[in-house]
């Protein structure tokens, strides 16, 4: 049995960053790259299912990204994933989330897992669309914003808790194979051990071309659901800043708090 975890390499902007010449994105020289936090929780959940379920479960980490995204797959392998899959094609440059969903759906078809887990959203753009879109494209059941999970391979179903607004949760029962989007806080993701990092070097990362996934660039390009007109840095309202040494800051803050609280009495 196989669990596929969809992961994304996200970009974190440096404090000082610049827009790209065409004004459609940031200049990637001003970013560092990281594994999406939500996907880290999804991976951890898959690894725990494998550990509870015995040895016949394979955890596959899959990503849609260029060569640089291999680093995040290596992190997943170091934490315990068995295998990585990375898919890229030049048509994905400046792609939108729907194009990614189409490619990820093709990877899922090829891998034929019993369960797909992915983060609720990417930490960079927070689109919160990939997992649900993948499920719809596959015609699979899905549930979003899962914060507790019991997966039963034998019964072919899962019991999950969805986190709703205001502290409310919903319990659901869902048929599998299914796509579940995982909320942060469902578990505590592990760190990779030194041994894990060493072992990860020997584990395979497959990079199938579009043809091997049964998709083509024209079809993926036509799945685009939005186009960037421009990206810009918004003028944000700034507060009155309290400056000085930390001692001076604390003194002014204390006076301010007393003033505000005093006015109320």
């Amino acid at each position: 049995m196989r669990i596929l975890v969809g992961v994304k390499q996200v970009l974190n902007l440096d404090e000082e960053f610049e827009m790209r010449g065409d004004g459609l994105d940031v200049d990637q020289d001003y970013c560092d790259r990281a594994l999406n936090e939500w996907d880290d929780y999804a991976l951890e959940e898959a690894l725990r299912i494998r550990e509870r379920g015995g040895g016949d479960i394979e955890v596959v980490a899959a990503t849609v990204g260029g060569e640089e995204a291999t680093a995040e797959l290596r992190k997943c392998l170091a934490k315990g994933a068995d295998r990585g899959v990375r898919v890229w094609d030049d048509c994905l440059r400046d792609c939108d989330g729907m194009m990614v969903a189409h490619v990820l759906a093709a990877i899922v078809r090829r891998e034929d897992p019993a369960l797909v887990l992915t983060g609720v959203q990417g930490a960079d753009h927070g689109q919160a669309q990939t997992g649900v879109a993948v499920a719809a494209l596959l015609g699979w059941p899905w549930a979003a914003v899962v914060r507790a999970l019991e997966f039963s391979a034998d019964a072919g179903e899962a019991i999950a808790r969805r986190e709703l607004e205001g502290g409310l949760e919903e319990c659901i029962r869902i048929r599998c194979p299914a796509v579940l989007t995982i909320q942060v806080g469902i578990n505590t993701p592990r760190y990779a051990s030194l041994r894990g990092v060493t072992q990860a070097a020997g584990r395979p990362v497959d990079t199938p071309a579009f043809e091997r996934l049964g998709i083509d660039a024209a079809a993926i390009a036509s799945a685009r659901a939005s186009r960037v007109r421009r990206m810009y840095v918004p003028q944000k309202p700034r507060p009155r800043m309290i400056e000085g040494s930390v001692r001076e800051q604390a003194a002014e803050l204390a006076a301010l708090i007393r003033d505000i609280r005093g006015d109320r009495r």
Binding site: G97, M98, A101, V120, Q121, G126, Q127, A128, Q129, T130, V132, A133, V134, A135, A136, L137, W142, A143, A144, V145, R162, A223, A225, S226
Partner: peptide
């Protein structure tokens, strides 16, 4: 977010979240 992306994906509609 639990159903809007499914509508957009299935119907091939424009989508922004």
């Amino acid at each position: 977010i639990s159903y809007a992306p499914a509508i957009a994906a299935t119907g091939g509609h424009g989508y922004a979240s």
